[in-house]
Design a protein around this nucleic acid. Structure first.
Length: 571
DNA sequence: TAAATTGGCGCC
DNA sequence: AAAGGGCGCCAATTTA
C-alpha cells in the first residue's frame, strides 16, 4: 500500500498538500497548512513525498527533525527524462517543464549557485526563478509519469528516478550531518608536511626550501609552480620536455627532478587542502561539503566546493570518529569490472565476478596465465578505451575469453563515434555530441542487453570497429561513451546501494549515520557497539543493490570494510 | 577587467 | 606499463 502525496512550501513557511492517485492525479482537493514540517510530521502514513526539489525543501524538514522515507524529486526526474529523450541541453527546472507542457516560453535555468563556504543558510533559500504554482507542479508530475511509461524500459527508468530521488535525500542528510573532522589533527598534518607559515603569507617554509633547491639545481631562479618556466629551465639545461607532468619528469636524470616533484605534491596540499580550506570548510568538528547527486553526466556525484571527493590520502588522518564512536569505511571491490559482467552478461566474466575474492586474480587465472597486473591493465584498458601499450596487446586475449564483455564496450564506443547516444543499465543517457544540434530519432541508442548482446559477435567482435574513418573528436567521443556505460551503470548500482543502506540503518533504529560517499565507497559514523551491525548492513545493501539493479545475476558485489577511528587507518 | 581556458594533480 | 574515462580545485594565462 503506497500513499503518495505532493508537497510544496508556501512563501510563509506553510505547505500545500494533496494526495495522488495511481496516475499521479489529485485524489482529493489540495489543502494548505501553516507549518511545513508539521504538515509532514502529521502524515506518517505517506510513503512517498512528491516535491519539486529535495535540495530546497528537505533541509527545512531535517532542521525540524522530520526525516522522510522516500520522495520523488520532480526536477531530478526532469533532468533524467530530458536526457533519455536526447534533449539534455534544454532547461530542466520544473518551471521549464511546465512551460513546455503548456507551450509557453521556456525560462532558462537559473545560474548554479556558488558554494558558500561554511554557510548552511544558502540551503534554505529557494533560488529565484524556480518557483511555480502548486497545480503546475502537479501537471508536470503527471506528465512525467507518462514520459516514464513511454521509455523503452519503463521499469528501469522508474527505478532510476526513484534512486536518484533517494540520492537527493541522502545528500541532504549528509550535508546536514557532516564528516567528523579534527581541525587540530589537520593542522598537525599541515605543519609536518609543509612547515611553518610565514607571517606575511606566501609559501610555508618547506615549500620555500624546495623552491630554493629547484633553483639551485638549475643554477638560476626557477618558480616550480609555473610549468612554462620549468620547461624553459630544462631546455636551457639541454633537456627537452613537452610538459612538466610527473610521469614525464620521473624519466629525467636531473637534480631538479626530486625537489620539483616533491614541491608539486606539497603545493597541491597547500592550495587545495591547506589552512584556508580548513578555515572555509570545517566548523564545529564537521566538514560539510555540498553534495550534488547526478552532478556528472554519468551519474556520479560531485560536490559544490570543498573538494570532498578528492581528499588527499595524507589528509584523511583528520577524519576521526567521535569519542566512543567508530567509522565504518566500506569500499566496493573492483566495482567497474563486476558491473561490466552484470550488464554484458558475458558468461566468462560473470563466472569471474561471481566470487568475493580478488577479481583480477580470478581473471588472470582464467585468461592471463596468472599475471594479475596484465589482466587488470587489459580490463581497465578495455573500459577506458586505451589506444596503445600493453593494455592494447592484452585486449586480444580479453576479447577471446570474454567476447560479450568486450563487445559491450566496443558497441558503446561505436555508438559514440557515430554520434548516437548510449544509456546506462537503468537508462541514464549520455549527452548529445557537441554540435549535433538535432539528434532526432537517429540518436536513439541500443537498449540494454537486447541490443548489445544480440549482435555481440558482429561488428566489434572481430577486432573492433573501423579505425581511420573516425575523426579524433569522434574517437574521443567513443572513449567517452565506452566508459560511460560502465561508469554510469556502476553509479546506478551505487545509488541503489545508498538507498538500501539508508533504509536499513533507519529500519534498525540505529544511531549510525551515513557521512561520506565517493563513487564506490561509503563511510558510516556509528557508536562502537553498532559497528558490526553496520558492516553487515552494508554487505546486505550491496547485494540487494546488485539484484535490484541487474536482476538475477551470479555477479557478487563484495566490500572491503574496516572499522576504524581514523579514516586513514582504513587502507 | 572579468570570464574562459590551460596545465597540473588530487580522488574514483 | 603507459599516459585511455569521469570530476574539482588552484593559479596563471589567454580571450572577449
Amino acid at each position: 500500500m503506497t500513499e503518495r502525496w505532493a508537497l510544496a512550501a508556501t512563501e510563509s513557511g506553510g505547505a500545500h498538500l494533496v494526495p495522488l492517485d495511481g496516475a499521479g492525479l489529485p485524489a482529493a482537493p489540495a489543502v494548505t497548512e501553516p507549518d511545513l514540517a508539521e504538515a509532514v510530521r502529521g502524515r506518517p502514513g505517506v510513503t512517498r513525498w512528491v516535491w519539486r526539489s529535495t535540495a530546497e525543501i528537505y533541509p527545512r524538514l531535517l532542521a525540524a527533525g522530520v526525516p522522510v522515507a522516500r520522495c520523488y524529486d520532480v526536477e531530478a526526474a526532469e533532468s533524467l527524462l530530458l536526457g533519455h529523450e536526447g534533449r539534455l541541453g534544454e532547461p530542466r527546472s520544473a518551471a521549464a517543464a511546465h512551460a513546455r507542457l503548456t507551450r509557453a516560453p521556456v525560462p532558462p535555468d537559473p545560474a548554479p549557485r556558488q558554494a558558500v563556504p561554511g554557510s548552511q543558510s544558502s540551503l534554505f533559500e529557494p533560488r529565484s526563478g524556480t518557483e511555480l504554482p502548486f497545480d503546475a507542479l502537479l501537471q508536470v508530475y503527471a506528465d512525467q509519469l507518462a514520459r516514464h511509461d513511454a521509455t523503452a524500459r519503463p521499469d528501469r527508468m522508474r527505478l532510476l528516478t526513484a534512486s536518484e530521488s533517494a540520492g537527493m535525500l541522502v545528500a541532504a542528510e549528509m550535508n546536514r550531518s557532516g564528516l567528523p573532522w579534527r581541525a587540530d589533527v589537520h593542522r598537525d598534518v599541515l605543519q609536518d608536511l609543509l612547515g611553518e607559515r610565514y607571517a606575511g603569507g606566501g609559501e610555508p617554509r618547506r615549500l620555500a626550501e624546495l623552491a630554493d633547491e629547484v633553483s639551485a639545481a638549475f643554477g638560476h631562479r626557477v618558480r616550480p609552480d609555473l610549468p612554462a618556466e620549468v620547461v624553459r629551465a630544462f631546455g636551457r639545461a639541454g633537456i627537452k620536455v613537452k610538459s612538466t607532468r610527473r610521469w614525464e619528469l620521473e624519466e629525467l636524470d636531473h637534480p631538479a627532478v626530486r625537489p620539483l616533484i616533491q614541491y608539486k605534491k606539497l603545493y597541491r596540499i597547500w592550495t587545495a587542502h591547506g589552512w584556508s580550506w580548513l578555515q572555509d570548510w570545517v566548523r564545529d568538528g564537521r566538514f560539510r561539503p555540498e553534495y550534488q547527486p547526478g552532478g556528472t553526466v554519468s551519474g556520479r556525484w560531485t560536490t559544490n566546493g570543498g573538494g570532498a571527493l578528492q581528499i588527499p590520502k595524507v589528509i584523511r588522518r583528520a577524519v576521526v570518529a567521535d569519542e566512543g564512536w567508530r567509522l565504518v569505511v566500506a569500499d566496493a571491490d573492483q566495482m567497474e569490472p563486476r558491473v561490466l559482467a552484470a550488464i554484458s552478461r558475458d558468461r566468462g566474466l560473470m563466472e569471474v565476478a561471481g566470487h568475493d575474492g580478488d577479481l583480477y586474480t580470478a581473471l588472470s587465472d582464467r585468461a592471463f596465465h596468472g599475471d594479475r597486473d596484465h589482466a587488470k591493465i587489459a580490463l581497465l584498458g578495455a573500459v577506458y578505451g586505451q589506444t596503445s601499450g600493453d593494455g592494447l596487446k592484452n585486449l586480444a586475449a580479453l576479447r577471446r575469453r570474454f567476447p560479450l564483455a568486450v563487445a559491450y564496450v566496443d558497441d558503446a564506443a561505436k555508438a559514440g563515434e557515430e554520434g548516437r547516444l548510449v544509456r546506462t543499465w537503468l537508462g541514464r543517457t549520455s549527452p548529445p555530441a557537441a554540435g549535433s544540434g538535432d539528434d532526432g530519432e537517429a540518436g536513439i541508442p541500443q537498449e540494454g542487453d537486447d541490443g548489445l548482446t544480440g549482435d555481440g559477435s558482429g561488428s566489434s567482435a572481430d577486432g573492433g570497429f573501423t579505425p581511420g574513418y573516425a575523426s579524433s573528436d569522434a574517437r574521443a567521443r567513443g572513449r567517452f561513451t565506452r566508459n560511460f556505460v560502465v561508469q554510469g551503470s556502476a553509479a546506478d548500482w551505487a545509488l541503489l546501494l545508498l538507498a538500501a543502506l539508508r533504509h536499513s540503518l533507519t529500519a534498525a533504529g540505529l544511531r549510525a549515520e551515513l557521512v561520506f560517499f565517493q563513487h564506490d565507497e561509503v563511510i558510516v559514523h556509528c557508536p562502537l557497539e553498532e559497528a558490526e551491525t553496520v558492516v553487515e548492513a552494508i554487505r546486505a545493501a550491496g547485494e540487494l543493490a546488485g539484484r535490484t539493479a541487474f536482476g538475477e545475476t551470479p555477479v557478487r558485489f563484495p566490500f572491503t570494510t574496516a572499522v576504524v577511528q581514523r579514516y586513514s587507518d582504513a587502507k
